[in-house]
Structures are given as C-alpha cells and as structure tokens.
Simulated scan of single mutants.
Amino acid sequence: MKYEKALLLVLAVTMTIITELDLLPQIHRMGFYCGDPKLSHDYIGDTVTARYLLLISFFIPFLILIDKNLYQSSFSTYLLMYITFIIGYCLCISSVNFFKILFGEPRPHFFDTCKPVEALKCTPGSYVSTFTCTNSDLRRARDSTKSFPSGHSALSTFSAGFVLLYISNKASDWKRIVQVLCIAWILSCTVTRIFDHRHHWWDVLSGIVYGMGLAVITLR
C-alpha cells in the first residue's frame, strides 16, 4: 500500500510539472462568433493570482493542526492524510490543465488577449472556426483559449472541500472556524473569476463540481 501511494505521488507530481510548464500541445481550439459580447471584455488580471491560489490551497490542510481532535489520535494519521491530499492536489491541477487544452474554449477577454486577425474583417455574428492570434505575448495568447474549466474554482474547491469533508464527523472547538475559512476561500476564488472576466459562469460551476467530486474520490 505504501509503494502504491508513493507511485501515485510520483506520477501526480510529474503530470503536474508537465502541464504547469505548458509542455503539452493544444489539442483543440473552439472557434468564435464575430463580435461576440461574451468574449469582448478587457483583460484586467486576477484578484486571486495563480501563485496565491497554489500556495494557499497547498497549505489549507494545515488548518487541521489547530486541534488534535481534527486529525484523530496521532500525528502519523495526519501525515497519511496530507500525502493523500497532495496526490489529489496534483491530480486536480494536472487534469484541469489537460481539460483546458482538450476543450480550448475562449476566455471572456479572448478578443483583447488573442487579438485574432480574423476578427478584424469578419461579418458580425458569423462563426470563425480557425484563427490566428496576433498578440506578441505567446503565453498570454495561448492562455486566451483555456477557459474551460476554471482551475481556480476546481483547486480551491478541492483543497477546502477535502478539509471540510475530512472534519465533518469530528468534534472540535475549532471546527466551525475551519469550516468558515474553507468556505470563504472557495467563494473568494470562484466569484472573483467571473468578476475579473477570466471565466464564464459555466466554467466556474464546472470547476466547483469537479473539485468537490475529486475531493470525495481522494478521501475514499
């Protein structure tokens, strides 16, 4: 069992590194409707940056250390739980990154970030199936077609959801505080993705569902 978990950890970390470094080619890119208002927002950045998302989500399970009752009888039990969390954490990141290059959905700021040359001369309402981004920032141009699903929503929900499910049947004076912090983290990472025009609402919803589902599977 220990060797199986160690192998899973190595595979999950490897997949995360490969997908985070953007080493996989784009599998598919959706087209767009010329002048689509859903894709015409300006790029304004992230309220919750990717760096803070990764760091805070990674350290959220440490909230369980507030009270020994939350991680049962021994610290070794907590370590086993945390290793399990890291495996799911890495699988969440890598699988969401893969879905992004698989679906290739334009972000709400697609026109502003990709700057497709085809959008300059197409008839409003007509569908453009293939396009070429003219933005000199290649990383940002490629990111403009990675809207589905929301990685912020999936990862924040997975990390906080994992802790919420883990402590649900445990008695502790700190339990309510941990629950409130976890829910606040999910809300801050999901709602801001829509207000920042970084994702469509269905991207965020799918990320929440996927993240919570993965949390349940990881715990079981």
Rank of each mutant, 00 (worst) to 15 (best):
V10T: 15
L39K: 05
N69Q: 08
V178D: 04
K146W: 04
Y3Q: 12
M1W: 05
S153K: 00
Y43T: 15
K38R: 10
S150R: 14
S172D: 11
F148R: 05
R139A: 06
C114I: 08
S150W: 07
G161F: 05
L80N: 11
K170R: 15
M81V: 00
A141R: 03
M81Q: 03
L21A: 14
V180A: 11
R220D: 14
S126M: 06
C189F: 02
R176L: 09
T16M: 05
P37R: 14
I183V: 13
S57K: 01
M1F: 03
Q179Y: 10
S136Y: 02
S76T: 09
S126G: 03
H28L: 02
T190A: 03
K68V: 08
H197A: 12
P124F: 04
F98H: 09
R193Y: 01
L205E: 13
I87V: 11
F111Y: 05
T134F: 02
G88Y: 01
T123H: 13
W174F: 04
I177S: 13
I27T: 14
S150T: 15
C34P: 04
G213E: 13
Q179A: 12
L155R: 01
S76H: 03
S57A: 04
H28G: 14
C34G: 15
I56G: 04
T145Q: 09
T157R: 13
R51S: 14
K2I: 06
S74D: 15
F111A: 11
K170Y: 01
S57T: 06
K100V: 09
L21I: 05
G31Y: 00
K5S: 13
I44V: 12
K175G: 13
V48S: 15
R140Y: 08
R29N: 00
I64M: 00
A154H: 06
T157Q: 08
I87S: 11
R139S: 12
K146I: 03
L155W: 02
F111G: 12
I186K: 09
C189A: 12
S129C: 02
T192C: 08
F162A: 10
T77Q: 11
F148T: 00
V204E: 07
I83R: 00
T47K: 15
I194V: 11
G125S: 08
I186C: 04
E20R: 03
S159K: 12
I208R: 07
M212K: 07
T84E: 13
V209T: 10
P61C: 00
C182R: 03
T84I: 03
I177C: 14
V13L: 02
S136F: 06
T19K: 05
F58L: 01
L214P: 14
G35M: 01
I27A: 05
S74R: 02
W202Q: 15
